Computed example of a mutant assay.
Amino acid sequence: MMGVILKRSAMALAMVGGVLLLTAIGMSLVSMLGRRLFSTPITGDIELLQMLVAVTVACFLPLCEVNDRHIRVDIVATLFPARLNRALLAISHLMLALVSALLVWRTALLAVDSLDYGAQSVQLGIPQWIPQVAMLPGLALLGVCALHKSVLQLTGDAREAATGGERP
């Protein structure tokens, strides 16, 4: 049940990321065409693109984890017994959960500092805390998904670990 909830949450967040990515692509296209055809690009397009891509990446990470689609080198894994491979996967998911928690903590502190000091983007004056806060849900969900995957690997529930809790 928890796997299904996490998978649906990750999918919803990835959909938000997809909309943000399409927005970034559209803005870049309009800016490039404006630059080439009319000599009037969108002011601050690079700033906006950087902010949108940062939030977008954070939105896609939980889906990548819940589907276990991170890049993994399995060259030597075939030499190990299944139990050892499960333990190594559990450790890797747990480490990702810890790194995610660290990223949530530090990004939240960065957002608070940006708010306190009134940090803004150079060209457009967009408060920097806005994209920083927008990254937090994706990073937090990444940690929860990684922790769930770690528990599944430790308990040996390989079927649920592979399908994300959905029945085949």
Rank of each mutant, 00 (worst) to 15 (best):
1 M>A: 12
4 V>Y: 07
4 V>G: 00
6 L>E: 06
12 A>D: 00
19 V>F: 07
21 L>D: 07
21 L>Q: 09
22 L>N: 07
23 T>W: 05
24 A>F: 03
27 M>F: 13
28 S>L: 03
28 S>Y: 02
33 L>V: 15
33 L>E: 06
35 R>Y: 01
38 F>C: 08
39 S>W: 13
41 P>C: 06
46 I>D: 01
48 L>V: 06
49 L>E: 01
52 L>C: 05
52 L>Q: 01
53 V>A: 07
54 A>M: 08
54 A>D: 06
58 A>K: 08
58 A>M: 10
60 F>H: 11
60 F>D: 08
66 V>H: 06
69 R>P: 02
74 D>S: 15
74 D>W: 04
76 V>Y: 14
78 T>S: 14
80 F>Y: 15
81 P>V: 10
84 L>R: 15
84 L>C: 06
90 A>Y: 11
93 H>T: 08
95 M>P: 11
95 M>W: 15
96 L>E: 06
96 L>K: 01
101 A>L: 14
102 L>N: 02
102 L>S: 10
116 D>V: 05
117 Y>Q: 11
117 Y>H: 11
117 Y>C: 03
118 G>S: 04
123 Q>V: 13
124 L>M: 09
125 G>M: 13
129 W>T: 06
131 P>V: 04
136 L>R: 05
136 L>K: 10
138 G>R: 08
140 A>N: 05
141 L>Y: 02
142 L>T: 09
142 L>E: 03
143 G>T: 10
144 V>I: 15
145 C>M: 10
145 C>N: 07
146 A>C: 13
146 A>Y: 08
146 A>T: 11
148 H>Y: 15
148 H>K: 03
156 G>H: 06
156 G>C: 07
156 G>F: 04
158 A>H: 01
167 R>W: 07
167 R>C: 06
